[in-house]
Design a protein around this nucleic acid. Sequence first.
DNA 1: GAACGTAGGTGTATGCCGTACACTCTGTCA
DNA 2: TGACAGAGTGTACGGCATACACCTACGTTC
Lengths: 237, 237
Amino acid sequence: MGQVPKARLQEPAERRPRLNRDAVLRAGVELADQAGIDGFTMRTLAEELRVVPMALYKHVANKQELLEGMVNLVWAEVTEPDSARGWKQAMRGRAVSLWAALVRHPWAVGLMEAAGRPGPESLHQHNAMLGCLRQSGFSFRTTVHVMSMLDAYVYGFALQQKTLSFETPEESAEAAAATLDAESAEAAARYPYLLEVVGELAKEGYNYDAEFAVGLDVLLDGVESLRGSWRGGGAGD
Amino acid sequence: MGQVPKARLQEPAERRPRLNRDAVLRAGVELADQAGIDGFTMRTLAEELRVVPMALYKHVANKQELLEGMVNLVWAEVTEPDSARGWKQAMRGRAVSLWAALVRHPWAVGLMEAAGRPGPESLHQHNAMLGCLRQSGFSFRTTVHVMSMLDAYVYGFALQQKTLSFETPEESAEAAAATLDAESAEAAARYPYLLEVVGELAKEGYNYDAEFAVGLDVLLDGVESLRGSWRGGGAGD
DNA sequence: GAACGTAGGTGTATGCCGTACACTCTGTCA
DNA sequence: TGACAGAGTGTACGGCATACACCTACGTTC
């Protein structure tokens, strides 16, 4: 038999492969996606991995560090800006990619920019974005403006969407209507414009993709003129 | 002596006025402002009010409902759009007011749009905003676009600011530099553009007010042309 | 001014959370 | 074969939100 332990032959299907840090992080992301951040505890994650809670601490220092590792995985899903297509398309692509990642992992909103040191993927991403803008001729100041406003919009939109998100637009409208109905007829008089929106949205539906794009394009067009004024004004980099 | 109980005369200074829901909510806001959302527990709040934890449950149903009540107080601090000054100034004023409230109460970011039913102040605010835009001639669709993009930007900017916020810009730059220094010389080669920003910001400082205004004005100018195209295009309300 | 009902406040206890510490087990290499 | 290291375990602790039963003080009513 040599070095092969008996157990391996006796119960081959039962054996759970050994954990490692990466497996823990990936399972963490999956659990948080499914159960939400509230349902995500060291205990539930351990159970998912068919392991006792304390086993996780062999691979991560504590829950905070685990979350940071998970956030890093989310950042890794974001594509960096592709300078080859010009700054506008590059910024647009990155914003959409970041937004999509945040929609896939809503629990990460508020954690990505949150406490603790930014992870390596986050640093890499931000460096790439700054580099793309600087090389496209943006002044230092304008580059900071652009990154600030673009990221703010993406985070904020994802934040709104996270809370308003239901499976279908109809469901969303229903929920809103229910809220208003709670105070019933009185509400109709008090919040007429809100009711109009709920009603219209219920009929026409609401498309997050399209809505996100409207604001994003407004910002990008605005950036274009910002850029022009800075270059034209002789205040270039 | 009449109906006055003896105790009142014996220890007049010792007596704590009876709690009520409003006092609990206000104390909650104050505690969350000072201790952050992590330091905010039913126990610490009860201690602050010199009361046993369970006493709070006579005034709020549970912690979730307590937080919703606190968020409602924050919404009440936001000034509604002042239509008299035109839609642009009205929207600008409201955005700044909302942002300021979120900076005063960082814990509220992510809670304002979060789970649970929106509170009465939130409904009132959103109704007022919609009303201002509709009465200014915006089409239904455009009104939704505008509110969506403006709020997203405000929330997102507040979210970023919350995590980057240090007492001084110098401190902020220091912290960022420390992060990069952790991996030291290697980092310099890996994140050159990031280092440039950290360095420049350390010298020139960073003004959140001004930075917020740049993005906000880009959005508002963009809205103006959005509005024009919709009205001009015959697709008005 | 005495009795009483009720709302405000208390004490105790439960179950979940993160995680410290000391252990056992298992696979690897000498 | 024996020893070592690193993976996984068991037990335990303090802090959390909060259920439930209790007590107390106050305004009301006669």
